[in-house]
Computed example of a mutant assay.
Amino acid sequence: MKGTQRIDAALLKSLRRQHCLSQEDLYFACQRRALRLSLATIKRAELGKRVSFRTVREFAAFFSVPPLLLVERAEL
């Protein structure tokens, strides 16, 4: 899967909150794990804007979920 995707913003926010992380905390946690997610990208994804599939994979790696779980159903 290539190009840009819309992440399920509600699911992403839910996963972040389950880990008791603010957007900024998530950014710093990703930096510690060498995951390439900027704070702006995290905010953009949670607003439901399109992001690269690499970004989807980075979120999936952080939350230990399959990447396709994060992609909005309309995008599949």
Rank of each mutant, 00 (worst) to 15 (best):
M1D: 07
M1I: 07
K2M: 10
T4S: 10
T4A: 12
T4V: 09
T4K: 04
Q5V: 15
Q5H: 14
R6N: 11
R6A: 12
D8I: 01
D8G: 01
A10G: 03
L11Q: 03
L12I: 09
S14V: 07
S14Y: 10
L15M: 11
R16F: 08
H19D: 15
H19R: 15
C20S: 13
C20Q: 15
C20N: 14
C20M: 12
L21P: 03
S22N: 08
S22K: 10
E24A: 12
D25C: 03
D25P: 01
D25R: 08
F28V: 09
A29G: 12
C30I: 08
Q31H: 03
R32W: 09
R33V: 04
R33T: 06
R36H: 15
L37V: 12
L39Y: 11
L39S: 07
A40C: 07
I42G: 04
K43N: 04
R44K: 15
E46Q: 10
E46D: 07
G48Q: 01
K49S: 13
S52H: 02
S52Y: 03
R54D: 13
T55C: 12
T55M: 07
T55H: 04
R57S: 05
E58N: 05
E58K: 04
F59Q: 00
A60N: 00
A60Q: 01
A60I: 01
A60L: 00
A60E: 01
A60R: 03
A61N: 08
F63W: 05
L69T: 14
L70G: 02
V71G: 02
V71K: 09
V71A: 06
E72R: 08
A74C: 06
E75L: 11
L76R: 14
